[in-house]
Design a binder for these strands. Structure first.
Lengths: 232, 232, 232, 232
DNA sequence: AATGAATGAGTATTCATTCAT
DNA sequence: AATGAATGAATACTCATTCAT
C-alpha cells in the first residue's frame, strides 16, 4: 500500500478518534488498530501524537474552508454567497462530525501549536465573511434599493453611508456569535425530529443577517425603526 | 480546617484545573497540591475524579443560572430582561472563566453523566429565553409585511398575524441560536483582552435582537431612540 | 458503652469481614463502620490490623475448641465422644461460617504470627482425638468384644494389641484428612438440598472411623479381612 | 524472546507469587520483576491481574487433572486406579506447591470468576472418584451384614444387596469427603518436610478405603495379603 | 513497507495509621 | 469514651514512544 494512501487512512482514523474521545483520551493504539497497521508505522509516517493531531487540524481546517468557499459563485450577490456558504458549512459539518469536533471542541483546549491552526482557519472564514459584507456595502452604493431583491438583503439598505471602519474586534465577535449559533442550531436540528439542516440554515440566516448588516454599517436597530415607522 | 471549607477549596481548585487542562489532562495530584492537602483527602471528601468533575459542573451550572436569572425584573419588557440577563451572563462568565470553560468546553465532550448536567443548564436558559420571546410575541400587535419573501423566509411566511401562535419549534430554534451565540461569544470574550461584559452583551443584543424582531413585532429596547434620532 | 462490649462488637465485625474478604482485602474502615464507631477507636482498643486479626484467630480458635469439647461426656465411650465432637464441630462451623473461614482459610496464608495460633488450635483438637483413640485402645483391653456395641466401634476390635507408638506424623496426617473431609462435606452438604449436617457427620463418621482405628492400631485393612472371611 | 515463552514465564512467576502471597497481597510489580520484564509487558500479554489469576487457576487446574488421570490404567481394578490417582495427585501437588496453593487456598476465597474454575476441577475429580466407586459397587457381589447398626449407619442400612444402586448422593458425599481429605492432606504434606507422596497416598488410602469398603464389598487392594498373613 | 517486543513515566485510587481535641 | 481531619506509601493499570529486524 502506497504511503500517501496509508497516511490518509491514518488521518481518517485519527480525526475520528480525536473527535470522539478528545486529544488526551485518544490513544495511538486505537488509531493504529482502526487502520489495521502496527503502531510503529503510524510513528514512521506521522512522527508523534502531537504532529498527528496538528496534521488533522490542518487537514480538516482546509477541508472546511474549501467546502464553504467551493460552492460560491463569485458574481452572485453577497447575501446569496453567504447563504450558499452557510448551507455548505452545515452540510460539511453534518457529514464530517468528527472533523468538526476536532476543530471546534478539541483543538482549542490544548496549548498553542493547535489553537493557532484553528485561529488561522477562523480568520480565513471571518475574512471571507468580512469580504462579503464589504462587497455588499460597496455594491450598495450602486443599488440603493435592495428591499425587493430578497429579504435577506433588506437589512443592508442603509449601508450606503457605512464607510467608517468596522473594528476588527466587532467582526471577530460576530464570527464567534455566528459560529456559536450555527453549532448550537446544528446540534439542536440533529436531535429535533422534523428540522432539516436547510431549515436550520434558513433560521440562522434570518437570525443573523440583519444583525450582521447592522453591525457592518455601524448601525443598530435600523430595521426596527423601519418597521416601527411602517407600523405607525 | 472544617470539611465544608475544604470541600469548597477543593472544588475551586478542581474547577480551575479542569477548566484549564480538560478532564483527562487534569490530575488529582495537581488539584490536591493546589489546595495544599494530600490526595487521599480529596478522595475522602469527593470520592473520585468523575464525581468531582460532576460536582464542579453542577455547582458552576447552578451558579451560572442563578447569576443570569438573579437580576431580571419580572415586570420589565422582554428586551430589557434579555439585556439584563445577557449582561449578567457575560459578567459571570468573565469573572468565572474556569467555571465557564468547564461548562462550555470540557463537560460536553465526556459521556452522559457530564453532558446531561450541561444540557439541563442549557435547557434552563433556553426555557428562559423562550419565555421571553413568547411574552414578546404575545405583547405584539400586528407585524410588518414579511410575506412573499424568498425561501429563507418561507418558514416565517404566514406568521404575520401570529399573535401568540409562534410555533414552539421556531422559538426554540431561535433560543438555541441565541444561547449558542452567547456561549460562543462568552468564550471568545474571555480569551480576548479588552472586551467587557457589556460590550459583548451589546454585540449579541444587536446581533440577535433584530433577528428576533424579524419574527415578532413590538420590541421595546429603550436605547433605540438615540439611533432613531440619528436617523431622523 | 463499656470497653469490653465495644471490643466484642469490633471483633465480631472483624471476624465477619476477615472471613468474607480475607486478611488483605478486609479494611479497617469497613470494620469500624460495621460497628458504627470511628476508626481511631478501633485502633485505641485493638492497636493494629495485625493484632486485631490475631485476636480474632485466638478467639475463634478457643470458641471452636470449646464447642467441640463442651458436649462430650467424659465417661462415654470414645467413639461416642468423637461422634459428639464431630456433630458439635459441624454445628459450630455451620453457625459460625465467618469464624471458621478465618481459621481455616485466612489464617494459614499469612506469615507466622497467624499460622502459629491456628497450629495451636489444631494441635489441641488433634490431641483431643488422639486422647480419645488412645483411651479407646486402653478400654479395649478390658472389652475385647466391641462388635455389638455399635458399628462405629466395630473397627476397633483388633486394637487390643495396639500398644505400639503411633507416629505423631500419622496422627497429624489423619487430623488433616479428617478436617479436610469434614470441610469438604460441610460445604457440599450446605449446597446440596436434602443433606442435613447430621447426615454429613454420620457419613464422615463412617468414612473415617474405620481408618482412624486401623491407623491407631498400626493395621491396615483389617476390617476387610474380616468381611472377606465373612463373605467366603 | 518469543511471546509464548514470555507468557509461560509470566504465568510461572504469577503462580508462584499468588501461591505465596495470595491474590490480594501479590503485586504485579513483583511478578514482572520475577520475570525480569517491565510491568506493561505483563499487562500487554495478560491484560489484568484478574485475568492473570484466572489463567493461572485454569492452567494449574488442567495440569492437575491431567496428572491425576494420566497414569490410570482403564482396565485396572478400582482400588488400584484410586491408588495410582492418589499417588499422582500427591506427587503433582508436591512438585507444584505454588500451583496447588493457588488452587486450594487462594482461588476459593475470591468471588465467582475464580472459584468457578476450581469448582470445575473439583467436579472433574469427584466425577472420577464417583466413577471408580460406582464401578466397584457394580463389581461387588454380596455385602457383609451391616444391618441393624446405630444411627450413624442408618443411611447405609438397606444397602446390603445394593449391587449397583448405591444412591448417587451417598457416593457423591463419599467422593466429596475423599477429595477434601486429599486436598487437605496434600496441603499438609507440602508444608511438612519428610512426607513423601506415596506416604501421603498410603495414609489416605488406608484412611479412606476401608470406609468406602463399608459401603461396598469386594475390593481388590493387592497389598492386603501382607496384613492378612499378619493376622492369621 | 512493516512489525513484534519492550518500557519509562505517569494516573486514579486505596489503606493502615496518627494527631489534636 | 470517642472523633474529625489528615497522610505516606503502595497498587493496578495506561500510554506515547523506541529498537531491532
Amino acid at each position: 500500500m502506497p504511503r500517501a494512501e496509508r497516511e490518509r487512512q491514518m488521518m481518517d482514523a485519527a480525526v475520528r478518534t480525536f473527535g470522539q474521545r478528545g486529544y488526551r483520551a485518544a490513544s495511538m493504539d486505537e488509531i493504529a488498530e482502526l487502520v489495521g497497521v502496527s503502531k510503529p508505522l503510524v510513528y514512521l509516517y506521522l512522527n508523534s501524537k502531537e504532529e498527528l493531531f496538528a496534521a488533522c487540524i490542518r487537514r480538516e481546517s482546509e477541508a472546511l474552508v474549501a467546502a464553504v468557499t467551493a460552492g460560491v459563485e463569485p458574481g452572485a450577490p453577497a447575501d446569496r454567497q453567504l447563504w450558499t456558504g452557510l448551507v455548505a458549512f452545515f452540510a460539511h459539518t453534518a457529514e464530517n462530525p468528527h472533523g468538526w469536533a476536532v476543530l471546534h471542541r478539541q483543538a482549542r483546549m490544548h496549548g498553542e501549536p493547535f489553537a493557532a491552526e484553528v485561529t488561522k482557519m477562523r480568520e480565513a472564514l471571518v475574512a471571507y465573511v468580512t469580504g462579503l459584507i464589504g462587497a455588499t456595502a460597496r455594491e450598495a452604493h450602486g443599488t440603493p434599493d435592495l428591499a425587493d431583491r430578497d429579504v435577506v438583503n433588506r437589512d443592508l439598505a442603509d449601508r450606503d453611508r457605512a464607510d467608517r471602519d468596522v473594528a476588527d474586534r466587532d467582526v471577530a465577535g460576530l464570527a464567534q456569535a455566528l459560529v456559536g449559533a450555527a453549532e448550537s442550531l446544528a446540534a439542536w436540528a440533529n436531535e429535533t425530529p422534523g428540522v432539516s439542516a436547510k431549515e436550520a440554515a434558513a433560521t440562522l440566516m434570518n437570525f443573523a443577517w440583519t444583525g450582521l448588516g447592522n453591525l457592518m454599517a455601524g448601525e443598530r436597530w435600523t430595521e426596527q425603526e423601519k418597521r416601527e415607522t411602517a407600523h405607525l
